[in-house]
Amino acid sequence: MDEDSFREFVGARLKRLSRVAYLLTGDHHAAEDLLQVALIKLAARWKHVHRESNPDAYLRKILHHEHISVWRRSRYLREERSHAWVPDQPTTDGTEAALRRMMVRQALSKLTPRQRSVIVLRFFEDLSEADTAKAMRCSTGTVKSQTSHALQRLRRLAPELAQLIDSPREALV
């Protein structure tokens, strides 16, 4: 195995991959675990993947597959749940961004793993429905339905967040 090319590939993407893993898990330890497992799988097939396919797409597929089917084994995450309290409105002092991040984390934690993946793929990684379907190994119809489910749930979990979700980006900066 060409370990240098693997290090180079991962090194160039580590920050972005860490951000994706954190959004998928909402927890530093879980994010580190998720990324480590995904990279182990990539390393094991690096020779083949590096030469014959698209390593980015392959790694994305592993990352989301691991997130959905292996690491999120708790049934808590697949069911309707009651909800922890989130503030009604972000405050206007310096903690506004922190409160907003907390609300996003809490709302994301209430999504199913598939819903969380589809949100990250579509709205953070900015993938098309077709590429999202490839990453999640499902149909574009499922991507559409999961996206709809997820957005519906995000708006339901935190109406104040729903307002922000639907705001133009400029309004939040």
Partner: peptide
């Protein structure tokens, strides 16, 4: 785009998880 911004803002909390060596 508001959702994209919220996700980016939340992702700013991430650290850089350098697990390259354990992965190898």
């Amino acid at each position: 785009s508001g959702l994209r911004y919220l996700l980016e803002e939340t992702a700013d909390e991430a650290k850089v998880y350098d697990v390259t060596q354990p992965a190898l």
